[in-house]
Amino acid sequence: MTPDTHGWPLYEVFVRGKRGLNHVHVGSLHAADDTMALTHARDLYTRRNEGVSIWVVRSEHIAASTRDEKDPFFAPSADKVYRHPTFYDIPDDVPHI
């Protein structure tokens, strides 16, 4: 694996906007390590507002449940936040914009 083709790993970001609220998932970002992920999260998702609390976690470390393992309406690939956690082949296509 060459680091550059894969880039930095994906992190999920959770932010508590103010005291009294839960941390809420706000999105993801890429970072080489936890420290960098926190710095980036602060810059990107809170525009460095002081006093908010941020959690970051590597996306691959999140286990996600389906409502019912037998429920066919949910993906069978049970344990990841996204169904396709890695590279997905997209067709090259001429756009309409």
Binding site: D4, T5, H6, G7, L10, G27, S28, L29, H30, L44, V81, Y82, R83, H84, P85, T86, F87, Y88, I90, D92
Partner: peptide, 20 residues
């Protein structure tokens, strides 16, 4: 970045999208 993040929930990889 928000949008690449949304694309990644569909299984796309940002490094790959940048290459494209």
């Amino acid at each position: 970045l928000y949008l690449y993040s949304a694309a990644e929930t569909l299984g796309a990889d940002r490094a790959d999208l940048t290459e494209r």
